[in-house]
């Protein structure tokens, strides 16, 4: 289970500062912020704008453009199901429906108890051993109902 730090402006400054020497540092900075806090807090936007000498609107525009950046913390575990064509061809639709039914929430949502966020992902590059999924960064291929149930139980425990 990933462990994230509580929000701290000082910590955020330090994390951002590590990438200040790079060319085009905004994306690495945003990734680092999310890796530290589990999401990209609104409070970090003016900090980034200040440091990079761009407007808040520009930073906000970047944060909201990319699917990866979260605007609020995810559930304790994140289960990503690949929903791209190769996984669809190999029975991914039924598995996605099964996961939604078992967790009682739709793709893109978090269970009521806050334990599991289930999300679609568009291609893990495991297309010859489809369908595939990722639980908290761990990849699983040749997914079937049994394997999916095991992942769901693991995430719920």
């Amino acid at each position: 289970m990933p462990h994230y730090e509580p929000w701290s402006e000082e910590r955020a400054e330090a994390v951002i500062g590590e990438f200040a020497h790079l060319e085009g540092p905004l994306m690495p900075m945003l990734h680092a912020v999310q890796e530290t806090f589990g999401y990209v807090p609104d409070a970090v936007v003016p900090m980034l704008a200040e440091r990079l000498n761009v407007s808040r609107a520009e930073v906000h525009g970047v944060v909201t453009f990319y699917h990866d950046f979260r605007h609020e913390p995810a559930g304790q575990h994140v289960l990503k199901l690949c929903r791209a064509e190769a996984c669809q061809a190999a029975g991914g639709d039924a598995l996605a429906a099964h996961a939604e039914h078992k967790l009682g929430c739709k793709l893109g949502e978090t269970t009521a108890d806050g334990r599991v966020t289930v999300e679609p992902i568009y291609c893990l590059g495991l297309c010859a051993t489809a369908p595939s999924a990722m639980l908290d960064g761990r990849i699983v291929a040749r997914l079937n109902e049994r394997r999916l149930d095991a992942l769901i139980s693991e995430a719920q425990s």
Binding site: G24, M27, P28, L30, H31, Y66, H67, D68, F69, Y122
Partner: peptide, 10 residues
């Protein structure tokens, strides 16, 4: 050279 990571935008 350096590796840079995208953020889920096709």
């Amino acid at each position: 050279m350096e590796v840079r990571m995208g953020a889920g935008a096709y």
